[in-house]
Design a protein around this nucleic acid. Sequence first.
DNA 1: CAGTGAGCGAGCTTCCGCTTGACTT
Length: 499
Amino acid sequence: MKLVVVESPAKAKTINKYLGKDYEVLASYGHIRDLPSKNGSVEPENDFVMHYEVDSDSAKKFKPIVDAAKKADELILATDPDREGEAISWHVLEVLRAKKAIKDIPVRRVVFNAITKAEVTRAINNPRDIDMNLVDAQQARRALDYLVGFTLSPVLWRKLPGSRSAGRVQSVALRLICDREAEIEKFISQEYWDISADLDKKITARLTHVEGNKLDKFDIPNEKTAKDIEAKIKGQKLEVTNIEEKQALRNPKPPFITSTLQMEAARKLGFGAKRTMQVAQKLYEEGYITYMRTDGVYVAPEGIQSARSHIERAYGKNYLPQSPRSYQSKAKNSQEAHEAIRPADIAQTPEILSKKLDDDKARLYDLIWKRMVASQMNPAIFDQVAIDLQTQDKYAQFRANGSVVKFDGYRRVYEEGVDDGKEEEEKLLPKLDKGEVLDVKKLNPEQHFTEPPPRYSEASLVKKMEELGIGRPSTYASIISVLQDRDYVTLDKKRFIPE
DNA sequence: CAGTGAGCGAGCTTCCGCTTGACTT
């Protein structure tokens, strides 16, 4: 019997089916040992020696692996293909050796990026050794986090009563929130004006040039300037001087990863990060979606293929690109051990599942399914028109913009939500000719004030952390909880305010 | 005499990242 060790029990079950009777696949349930939460777990004075411990919970979960190892004639370490996964393999091996659970059997390290029969088989046939460089990188990460956190936190207890913890990730996240608050406090709102004109044929144009000079945002700083300009334009007609027509394409967004799922669920469903992850976990365990803690946008070929055939069947050839779309991860430190978050089976449409799933699950699945399908569809095409108009005395120039969806493409299925903004609206402009003259029905000078940057929401903080390479998919939600549990920040109208 | 409160001292907290499941709210 060959013993295969993976991290998650759900994966173990699936892989067991693929590999058959000669193999026994067991789960480590993540890390099996860790630095105990006390002084001296890392000794900087002693070449950074690290003292790991298997706690009683881990020991219970590890027992089946120990028992199986004793009977196995080969050990296959198939933990996740990233830094933490490599270390878990090494820890498993170390503990099995320390317990003398394995003798002289071959030990192989195997990695796969998707849980499909083809990929698992390929991986099993291409074993390698444990990559000690990767393991050491993980140990350095672990030691550093321990040393930073357990050195800084006690300093805080003494110097700042009420504070409870500090760490490589949480303190930086807190700093982001505080910096933003400082920015808001010192923000000075600035007045500016713009002028638009209501024309014949229900056209609205905005003032872009005065005396041949392009207007910048603050070029009309107050009411007096606005009224002066208005007075000079009043009574004049506008002549069409230029018409620009072009087509714009918009491509779909990549399928979800943990951070983007948390953001969209917040925008569209109002879910907090924690709730999103709990619901996603259930969907994953019940086999409806792929793994939910991931920073990879890669999709297994079978996933792409089934999305493409669904698109062709449900929406027709026009919606299907010639070749599959592929996406690349933007985050620099992404490890991409798992593929994107997508439905396990595209044929299970949200309509079918909505009858089987409870409300939260159904709504999250709906997002995931649509995002995946849309990510393989054709771009949306917009017909855009820009019309320049001039006063007869050439004092002022206006522009009217129009945008019409010519082909909805992926938007037929899914459109990403927006954060603090206005949804752009569709605006149809009537056919006009160069030289045509239009009456000005009304001039609208309008006062505006610049606004401070918004406070972070859970979603925008996660996005920022990901950009900066702080925290991991498995920890975004918990870091947010820590900041609140420690009373460092509070949520007001879903925005973080430092205490 | 019983209850109250000031004053003092002892003991405790903590990191990040990988997994669920057993708890409580």
